[in-house]
């Protein structure tokens, strides 16, 4: 896979409601606060707001810890006005990449000393659809989507 191929997920910054650069340890807390208020504004249930904020927190930390810097993109998706609303989160970095994606997503596996290794597997359980693409030396893209539940 070459560089160009890795970018086959087209991210048009203008489509996203929130674009955040993760560079500082402090940005992790900022990203989860922004995700939280964005989900709240879009009438997600309190539990789902917390799940979205937690997922974003995990994604930002992964960027900060492994890639040093990267981006978090968040947008609201609607199939029809007021029907089937969802929030899409993308974490993108050009860091070292993940060697064994399957193992990382399965959980209980970590390359970092101070971690439970539950980051990626946790995110996958918190949200409704999950996509990850990673290549060693190129970077990692994670796409996560959470639908708003009816009633």
């Amino acid at each position: 896979m070459d560089d160009k191929n890795f970018n086959d997920i087209d991210i048009n910054i203008n489509d996203y409601d929130i674009v955040l650069k993760i560079k500082d340890e402090n940005d992790i807390a900022v990203s989860r606060q922004m995700a939280k208020s964005f989900a709240q504004k879009n009438n997600f249930s309190l539990a789902d707001v917390t799940k979205i904020a937690t997922a974003v927190s995990e994604l930002s930390r992964n960027i900060y810890r492994y890639a040093k810097e990267g981006y978090i993109y968040i947008k609201k998706k609607e199939t029809e006005p007021d029907k089937d609303v969802s929030i899409e989160i993308i974490a993108y970095d050009r860091g070292p990449g993940i060697e064994n994606v399957e193992q990382a997503v399965a959980g209980g596996y970590t390359t970092s000393e101070r971690s439970l290794g539950l980051g990626l597997s946790g995110i996958r359980r918190l949200i409704d659809s999950f996509y990850i693409k990673s290549e060693v030396g190129k970077g990692t893209v994670v796409m996560a989507e959470k639908r708003r539940r009816r009633f």
Partner: peptide, 12 residues
């Protein structure tokens, strides 16, 4: 799963 999640939220 929808009802189970609603129930979990309400119960907690």
């Amino acid at each position: 799963s929808q009802r189970a999640q609603n129930m979990a939220e309400k119960l907690l």
